[in-house]
Design a protein around this nucleic acid. Structure first.
Lengths: 171, 171
DNA sequence: CCCAGATTGTAACATATGTTACCAATTCTG
DNA sequence: CAGAATTGGTAACATATGTTACAATCTGGG
């Protein structure tokens, strides 16, 4: 009932094109991401803000004012996540919301003075972390990383496991 | 009450070393990770397994049998996550658990035939995705990426935002 | 004008993940 | 061989995240 001794022997190497998790590139990138994310979270844990909140702060800080939908556009957060983060930031008096008279659905979001101060503090730590992280790489590697990241950011969206080119809903 | 016109003007570039989220390296890596994670999830969504479950399958598949604690060691999942994933996999008859007579706390985990088959299917898609993703890079870049990843994996653990060298609890 | 979409944001629920505490089994120490 | 300390695993709760549905606008034809 079998070809040449090809039964599932207990110690044989797996013949289905082996996938070893620890060497699987996408997995390694994902895990690295989690790791970095957790390290960074320490920089704002003291300030009592979450990751989505931090992202919202960072994006708003780049403009004088911005609608929630713009935060959605500039961020991997969906609108519900932004809604929650903004609500929380507003309670903490870090963000102020001023409703737009010409379109009552929208409200302009801007950082309060405290919000700006908090952001500055955290940004300092974050940039410091970035510097330290980059310092573990050789200068050529740092350049290479930027180029590679840019390509992967594009590629990861375009490419799909099945082979089909990315279902309409393109994150 | 001030040096040369250094007040916070509304349109001035932020003088606290500006952090632009979209150019912030750790952020980019984290987001790329999420993106890849979601793409990959499509490969097993059809098979109705979650990410932790997939990881457990992948790790177990590399050995004939393995205790839950070993999965914890080889994975970024904590023991609770592994416990849940294993429970679910057992219900789906993808993993079998055989308690160890010499140490009744431990149970050997191994893939069922169906588990092995499912893993092979998904691994195929996953490896395919990896290939496609890598194909967006030039050959030198592919090599560079591996080297860089290795360094960052080490570096991200060692380095902390504050400057202090990594609190005991080292993920 | 006014109605058929689209857009912006939130409520309310379902899942998933993290945290703490704990039990049972084992090992260590004298 | 008693405790005491450690280890493997899970229960039970708290929190976070994802999903669906919807209310309140707004917009663009006829």
């Amino acid at each position: 009932m079998s070809e040449a001794g090809k039964q599932a022997s207990l110690d044989a190497e797996p013949d289905s094109a082996s996938l070893v998790l620890s060497e699987f590139l996408p997995y390694r990138i994902v895990v690295l991401g989690h790791l970095i994310s957790r390290r960074l979270a320490r920089a704002y844990a003291d300030e009592n803000i979450t990751i989505p909140e931090w992202r919202v702060l960072a994006v708003i800080s780049q403009a004088n004012a911005m609608a929630a939908r713009d935060v959605v556009a500039k961020t991997p957060l969906d609108k519900m996540a932004v809604s929650r983060a903004v609500a929380s930031l507003e309670e903490k008096r870090l963000v102020e919301r001023q409703s737009d008279p010409t379109d009552k659905r929208v409200a302009a979001l801007r950082l309060s003075a405290e919000g700006r101060a908090l952001f500055a503090r955290v940004a300092g730590l974050a940039l410091d972390y970035e510097t330290r992280l980059l310092a573990t790489l050789a200068p050529e590697e740092q350049d290479a990383l930027l180029a590679i990241l840019a390509k992967l950011e594009t590629g990861a969206v375009a490419v799909s496991p099945g082979g089909f080119p990315a279902p309409a809903n393109s994150d």
